[in-house]
């Protein structure tokens, strides 16, 4: 979906440094890595002429709440609730082989990263994900199995 350049295009581009970064481009990068939130850009938040951009940027980063520390984003509005990611996630399979690993409802939820609630995938225990931590690998099991790119990492 988005990259830092697209975010940058929506920012004031004045390099005012009020957010603590040296430039608006640096701020865009900080947004992408979840270091800062859109509210840190005071002109964007407060000046009426940036209202549309502020709302757009805020909505872009809203779905990631709760997963900010790892950058796993679920676009809930896109999700089918099909559970492909739940069943394909190798960590889920390892932690619950006869539940989600076999295509069924979870039997052991304690270490599951992905599960379906109310027809939408929810992420939790994201620190278990193979993309994070000391021995991280670029696992993409949940991304390539999704029909609509509802999961991404930033």
């Amino acid at each position: 979906m988005t990259n830092a350049m697209e975010i940058y295009q929506m920012l004031p581009k004045t390099n005012c440094k009020k957010c603590g970064k040296t430039s608006c481009m640096a701020f865009a990068v900080a947004l992408m890595t979840r270091e800062l939130t859109p509210d840190a850009c005071l002109p964007l938040k407060e000046e009426p002429k940036y209202k549309d951009s502020y709302e757009k940027i805020s909505s872009l980063f809203k779905p990631s709440e709760g997963a900010t520390e790892t950058g796993l984003i679920v676009h809930e509005d896109l999700c089918f609730g099909c559970g492909n990611c739940v069943v394909a996630c190798p960590v889920n399979v390892a932690n619950d082989p006869y539940g989600v690993g076999s295509g069924n409802a979870p039997k052991n939820t304690s270490k599951l990263i992905l599960a379906i609630e109310e027809g939408i995938v929810k992420a939790r225990n994201v620190d278990e994900c193979r993309r994070f931590g000391k021995n991280k690998i670029l696992c993409n099991g949940c991304i390539v199995t999704c029909p609509v790119e509802a999961i991404e990492f930033v």
């Binding site: 999700c79 089918f80 609730g81 099909c82 559970g83 069924n104 409802a105 979870p106 599960a115 379906i116 609630e117 109310e118 027809g119 939408i120």
Partner: peptide
Amino acid sequence: DIEVEYGTETINKIYTACRVGV
């Protein structure tokens, strides 16, 4: 394999079912 969590009067939450199922 659908789990249903009930509230006092109605269904509170549905687990494992897809969007259409819910």
